[in-house]
Design a protein around this nucleic acid. Structure first.
Length: 766
DNA sequence: AGGGTTTTTT
């Protein structure tokens, strides 16, 4: 689909391409997540290397390693129709993480302050690098096009330099500020840092950024990089975004919920603000959809600077990803030249299996080939372990990075020349009919497979080995289904209500999540009393929208405030807002860690996981020695870093609550010392989680109060194995069966008392 | 009575 044209920039796609693009039909109301049968594969079950290639190759290995060496999968190679120029290596991507420190946020970025002259000198030096970027070469033509339209869709391939250069080109032409939005915080910070250097200004002066917990921008800042979430916050405060004359939405193709919302808001805002310009930047060829949405906006194309990546497919499908991954790794290691290997696997389970297999196999492999050094990479891995993928190795060694989707966009590992792609990923899908989420292993889209392959061509020519057939590839969906089509939209809907949108169903959705999903969200908001019977936002709803939390959690805090247990509720809510705070201990120490947690958290053992969080935070706060605190976290499999985030969230929520209630003394000492009123706290949580309740059956199982579905307490909960009349949980996730996570014991009578308006008469409890 | 979570953000 890549065009081979000398014209670096052109206005519109030819009809044939538009045709291809428009085949990507908008997915309307019915969210169907079933995949074509040919891509359906059983989840891998092997713990030992099973050799299903054995039949084909006639070998009967006595152990795993022999199987691996002797029966490499066979590869088909497709003729490369695309002519791509090989370019010299380019400056490091300013957008992704290339290094992790223990405290990512406290990293010293250009710690030494440069003098004015030094800054200018640096900027002149960088100008030479900038001039080599494809976007820079097309500068004049680009500016002319941009000047003539209010909305432009700009397709810039990876490494075109669009995110750093376009805002700088536009800077002299804008009276007000230019906002550039990013889906991720690190991207916003590092882009701003880089651009400030290029401009020759101190970060936070002419060029700055704004992300949660961290702002470096002032009133006159001309270019401001923000996260999508942050600019949506700004819209809540100033719905006309009056400080900006240009808004650039970057990475629009990722289609995160927040980017989608942003585009909807901008579409409406363009009616009101005739002086506003909007640029949608996207990496892939799905521009047609954006263009149509913005009344056939112009589409511009800037080529990137990627090296050629050869694509190889399997001749025959396999059904054991771990096994074929291992074989391919060894084959690549034996047969290919220098360069690291990046492997995309669906999840932690598969990654851990591959890592331990490789650790066992590596020393036994032929000594002619480099020694394989397997390195896992996924989000819940401690930062220190993640950082290992960036460390250089000794000679005659080859990194094999086994990663989840995190390596597709968030983390860029240098040195990768080979990509092995299983074509699978994990997706969380919200089922609003059932009030639960499911976690599926599903095939990626063509766009995603292309992005993964591109990871091999950042520094030199590379190869990608796809662990599926070319036929399978052709049948993949063109684009990944946008997040909004498979998410709970309670939060977006409240945001829209707060912004004054009455008709949610017919709002300017880039993609409408569907009537059922919207109605379910509206119903939930009504139950939380954020909306009145007419669907108008209530005063409570306004306050809920202001708090940087899920509406359920906001509702809990406002109830807790009324019942006098706000401080305790804030502590627990803060813990709930931080991911990966309570870690999964490794299987060897699992029972031991569970027992430690249980014996330490006396209230938690009795009342459940919410009180455990409160107790853990209290313990955490008691330490004055950081070393002891770290050790404590380690012993209980808790994230030290996570607790630091909890403290930041807690701080922020406290400030918001103070300003909402206009009570400066809300969290003063004497109030803090009130004894913990457990029923009040749990009832406050029940006000947010009325629909997340289940009743204990005589056979020790539970049935949900809303739909009567079978639900089990997850074994990681302190409530696991305990008999309760009723439980409340924060999550209902269906994996091998329906599990309630984060469980608390509640009294049956509370259900009527707190949730009578929702649960009503069908649950008369005798 | 017994488990497996991709990723992002205010």
């Amino acid at each position: 689909m890549r065009r081979n044209n000398n014209q670096k920039l052109h206005r519109k796609f030819d009809d044939d391409e538009s045709q291809i693009i428009s085949e990507n039909k908008p997915n309307g109301n019915n969210v169907d997540h079933s995949e074509d049968a040919h891509m359906k594969r059983p989840r891998p079950h092997i713990t030992e290397l099973q050799d299903q290639d054995t039949e084909a190759h006639g070998t009967q290995p006595s152990d795993g390693s022999a199987a691996v060496v002797n029966s490499a999968p066979r590869w088909a190679q497709t003729a490369s129709k695309k002519k791509q120029k090989v370019k010299k290596s380019h400056a490091a991507d300013a957008k992704t993480v290339t290094f992790f420190s223990d405290d990512e946020e406290e990293q010293q970025r250009s710690s030494k302050a440069l003098s004015f002259d030094q800054q200018k000198a640096k900027a002149r030096e960088l100008l030479e690098v900038r001039k080599t970027l494809p976007v820079y070469k097309a500068k004049d033509e680009l500016l002319e096009r941009l000047a003539n339209s209010r909305v432009t869709v700009l397709i810039g391939e990876t490494s075109s330099g669009k995110s750093t250069q376009i805002p700088q080109f536009l800077m002299p032409l804008n009276k007000k500020s230019i906002a550039v939005t990013q889906p991720r915080r690190v991207a916003a910070i590092s882009l701003a840092t880089r651009v400030a250097e290029e401009v020759g200004t101190t970060l936070g002066d002419k060029v700055g950024y704004s992300v949660r917990f961290d702002h470096k921008a002032k009133y006159g800042t001309k270019i401001k990089y923000l996260t999508d979430g942050m600019i949506l916050r700004e819209i809540m405060i100033d719905s006309s975004l009056s400080q900006y004359s240009t808004v650039i939405i970057d990475e629009a193709h990722e289609r995160t919920v927040l980017t989608d919302l942003m585009m909807g808001f901008l579409k409406e805002l363009l009616q009101k603000r005739k002086d506003l310009k909007v640029i949608i930047m996207s990496a892939t060829l799905d521009a047609e959809r954006f263009s149509k949405f913005f009344d056939n906006a112009d589409i511009l194309f800037v080529e990137g600077r990627m090296f050629k990546v050869e694509k190889l497919y399997l001749e025959k499908s396999v059904d054991d990803v771990v096994d074929s991954t291992i074989k391919t790794i060894i084959q690549v290691n034996n047969g290919e030249l220098e360069g690291d290997i990046l492997v995309f696997l669906p999840g932690q389970e598969e990654i851990d299996k591959c890592v331990s297999l490789l650790e066992r196999l590596a020393p036994e492999l032929p000594k002619e080939a480099p020694l394989i050094v397997p390195l896992p990479l996924y989000a819940s891995l401690p930062p220190a372990d993640q950082a290992k993928v960036f460390l250089p190795l000794k000679a005659r060694r080859r990194k094999v990075i086994l990663a989840t989707n995190i390596a597709e966009t968030s983390v860029t590992v240098p040195g990768v020349r080979y990509v092995i792609d299983t074509g699978l990923r994990k997706v969380k899908v919200w089922r609003h009919q059932l009030g639960l989420s499911t976690l599926l292993t599903a095939p990626v889209s063509k766009a995603s497979a292309t992005q993964r392959a591109g990871r091999a061509g950042r520094e030199a020519e590379g190869k990608t080995f796809r662990l599926y057939t070319e036929d399978d590839f052709m049948k993949l969906p063109a684009m990944t289904e946008p997040e909004i089509a498979r998410s709970n939209v309670v939060s977006p809907v409240l945001m829209l209500k707060r912004a004054g949108v009455d008709d949610i169903l017919n709002w300017s959705w880039l993609q409408n999540p569907g009537q059922d999903s919207l109605i379910s969200a509206l119903t939930q908001l009504h139950e939380l009393k954020a909306l009145d019977d007419n669907g108008k936002i209530t005063e409570l709803g306004e306050q809920m929208a202001i708090l940087p939390l899920e509406p359920q959690l906001s509702a809990i805090l406002l109830t807790a405030h009324k019942s006098g247990c706000l401080s305790d509720a804030v502590d627990i809510v803060s813990c709930l807002s931080v991911d990966n705070l309570i870690l999964n201990p490794p299987s060897e120490t699992r029972d031991e860690v569970n027992e430690k947690r249980r014996s330490l958290c006396i209230l938690g053992a009795k009342y459940g996981d919410l009180l455990m969080l409160k107790e853990l935070l209290d313990f955490y706060l008691q330490f004055d020695n950081s070393q002891e605190r770290k050790q404590w976290c380690h012993d209980l499999a808790l994230s030290h870093r996570g607790f630091k985030n909890v403290m930041r969230v807690r701080n922020q929520i406290r400030q918001y609550m103070v300003s909402l209630t206009k009570d400066k003394h809300l969290f003063d000492e004497e109030k803090e010392k009130k004894p913990l009123d457990i029923p009040s706290v749990l009832k406050a949580f029940l006000s947010g989680y009325v629909s997340n309740t289940a009743i204990g059956m005589p056979d020790r199982s539970y049935r949900t109060t809303t739909s009567g579905q079978l639900i089990s307490v997850h074994p990681s909960s302190l409530m696991f194995g305990k008999k309760n009349d009723a439980i409340m949980y924060t999550d209902f996730v269906y994996t091998t069966k329906g599990y309630a996570r984060n469980v608390s014991a509640i009294e049956l009578s509370w259900l009527q008392e707190v949730g009578g308006h929702v649960l009503a008469p069908k649950h008369s409890i005798a």
